[in-house]
Computed example of a mutant assay.
Amino acid sequence: MQELQIPNGYFQLLHMYLQQQDMDIFSLACLEPHQAQLRYVLSLPIDSQSTYSFFAEVMQLTQKQMDCPQLVFEMACLIRPEHFGVLGYMATRSNSVAEALQYVIRFSRLVIDGADVSPIQMHQRDKKICLSWPFHDLKYALLNEMTMACMVHLARQIFPAQKFQLLQINFAHSPEMADDHYQRFFACKVEFKQSDYSFEINVENLELKSELADPSLMQLLLRQAEDAIAAKPLFKTYLNLLTWV
């Protein structure tokens, strides 16, 4: 089974965060056994992917040495479109929240990929739009928190912050840190031990427009994303989805 792949942008985020703290990722004592692999990953294109298990180990060691359980949230505050590769740029240049979400669902494998990944689902409950995916394994708790935090912070950069408001965030695992860290970052209701991972927003948010929209550039980005997806292996979860569609 192929190991889960995540964006090299996540490693770059950690590097950026440590630099802001006047720390060198290559000088941390806890990461000394991993210096060669870190140098290699950080030398790769930011839009390529590397193994999640290595990222999880690096993050856990760094969190412990820095005594910073909220590290994922502090890193997420530095997120830029390029950390998500072509999908990040597509979200930034989308005309509306609805269009951005369509691309996130369609091309999410360009960010996180592997046999354990299930396609993101979007559905409406009353006047709420819910973007969700299932729980697979507790070992992915850090990845889910990191990705959800990065998606939220990037969305707040793209769309009017005073209008784009989360109604609720749901985690399938138990809190990994004190509850107030989650509340401060997401600024909405946060629930744990739920049946899946999900974001909930008001249906009216779908029509929010981005001042960064660029239809001409979107055509080029769309072709790049389609070519990148076509080059990926088709796992069973995605094969089942295509069969159902």
Results as ranks from 00 to 15, higher is better:
residue 2 Q to C: 12
residue 11 F to I: 00
residue 13 L to G: 01
residue 14 L to C: 05
residue 14 L to V: 03
residue 16 M to V: 01
residue 16 M to A: 13
residue 21 Q to D: 04
residue 21 Q to K: 07
residue 31 L to S: 01
residue 31 L to A: 06
residue 35 Q to T: 14
residue 38 L to W: 05
residue 39 R to Y: 11
residue 40 Y to E: 13
residue 41 V to F: 05
residue 42 L to S: 01
residue 43 S to A: 15
residue 44 L to V: 04
residue 46 I to R: 04
residue 48 S to Q: 00
residue 48 S to H: 15
residue 48 S to K: 10
residue 49 Q to G: 12
residue 50 S to I: 09
residue 50 S to A: 09
residue 51 T to P: 06
residue 53 S to T: 14
residue 53 S to A: 11
residue 54 F to C: 05
residue 55 F to S: 03
residue 62 T to S: 00
residue 62 T to Y: 01
residue 64 K to Y: 08
residue 66 M to K: 03
residue 66 M to S: 07
residue 66 M to L: 13
residue 66 M to I: 14
residue 69 P to Y: 00
residue 69 P to T: 04
residue 69 P to S: 04
residue 75 M to I: 05
residue 78 L to C: 06
residue 78 L to H: 04
residue 78 L to D: 02
residue 81 P to Y: 01
residue 83 H to T: 01
residue 84 F to K: 02
residue 85 G to D: 00
residue 91 A to C: 12
residue 93 R to W: 13
residue 95 N to Y: 11
residue 102 Q to T: 10
residue 106 R to H: 12
residue 106 R to Q: 15
residue 108 S to A: 06
residue 113 D to A: 07
residue 119 P to H: 01
residue 121 Q to R: 07
residue 123 H to F: 15
residue 126 D to M: 13
residue 130 C to E: 10
residue 130 C to I: 15
residue 130 C to P: 03
residue 136 H to D: 09
residue 136 H to E: 04
residue 136 H to P: 04
residue 137 D to H: 09
residue 141 A to N: 10
residue 143 L to W: 01
residue 144 N to H: 05
residue 144 N to L: 03
residue 149 A to S: 03
residue 150 C to D: 07
residue 151 M to K: 11
residue 151 M to R: 11
residue 152 V to T: 12
residue 155 A to T: 08
residue 156 R to Q: 10
residue 158 I to G: 07
residue 161 A to T: 13
residue 161 A to Q: 15
residue 162 Q to A: 14
residue 166 L to G: 08
residue 169 I to Y: 06
residue 174 S to R: 15
residue 175 P to C: 03
residue 175 P to Y: 05
residue 177 M to I: 02
residue 184 R to F: 15
residue 185 F to K: 07
residue 188 C to M: 07
residue 189 K to R: 12
residue 189 K to V: 09
residue 191 E to C: 11
residue 194 Q to M: 10
residue 195 S to M: 12
residue 196 D to I: 01
residue 199 F to P: 03
residue 202 N to D: 15
residue 205 N to R: 07
residue 205 N to C: 10
residue 208 L to A: 07
residue 210 S to M: 06
residue 210 S to E: 06
residue 214 D to E: 09
residue 217 L to S: 10
residue 219 Q to P: 02
residue 222 L to M: 06
residue 223 R to Y: 09
residue 224 Q to Y: 08
residue 225 A to S: 00
residue 228 A to G: 05
residue 230 A to V: 06
residue 230 A to I: 07
residue 232 K to H: 02
residue 233 P to E: 02
residue 233 P to A: 03
residue 236 K to E: 08
residue 240 N to D: 14
residue 240 N to Y: 13
residue 241 L to R: 13
residue 241 L to V: 12
residue 241 L to H: 14
residue 242 L to Y: 15
residue 242 L to H: 15
residue 243 T to R: 14
residue 245 V to Y: 15
